[in-house]
């Protein structure tokens, strides 16, 4: 079973991280890499819960996690509001304290932690986020 459905609530972030860690461990990733994969999955799921599903009571979303050869694939599928990744400003990592903005940090971390991040918004069939990490 590589696809699990979660309620769009922060209480389930730990379960999502555990799910990703289990598949990654079976796939031979190091503990350091597993931490990164858990963080990327957490940030992605947090964005879905906080933004895409914000106005949907009792929303669910699917998380698929599996190895394809030497690559771990995480797919998240939600029926919430689509967003335009190009409209999200990357965080300014050198701004001083007062000018530092926190928005967009999750998306930035996902890109830094994973080898590939793809997002396909679709208001009819749902939004699909695909993240890939090759085993080092």
């Amino acid at each position: 079973m590589t696809k699990l459905t979660f309620q769009a609530r922060f209480d389930f972030l730990n379960d999502i991280r555990e799910f990703v860690a289990r598949i990654a461990r079976q796939g031979g990733f190091s503990e350091k890499e597993i931490y990164s994969l858990q963080l990327a999955a957490d940030e992605a799921a947090t964005n879905i819960i906080e933004h895409a599903c914000a106005d949907l009571p009792n929303a669910n979303f699917d998380v698929t996690c599996e190895m394809r050869g030497n690559t771990l694939m995480i797919i998240m599928h939600d029926m919430g509001a689509p967003f335009d990744p190009a409209a999200i400003q990357p965080p300014n990592l050198t701004a001083d304290l007062s000018a530092r903005k926190i928005g967009g940090l999750g998306l930035y971390l996902m890109h830094k932690l994973m080898d590939e991040v793809h997002y396909t918004p679709n208001s009819k069939t749902g939004n699909v986020l695909t993240m890939l990490k090759h085993r080092g």
Partner: peptide, 19 residues
């Protein structure tokens, strides 16, 4: 054991307030 950007955000807000 673990901290996501949600924790970073709380630390940033607190640092602003403290300084």
């Amino acid at each position: 054991e673990y901290m996501s950007s949600a924790g970073f955000r709380a630390m940033l807000a607190s640092q602003r307030n403290c300084q």
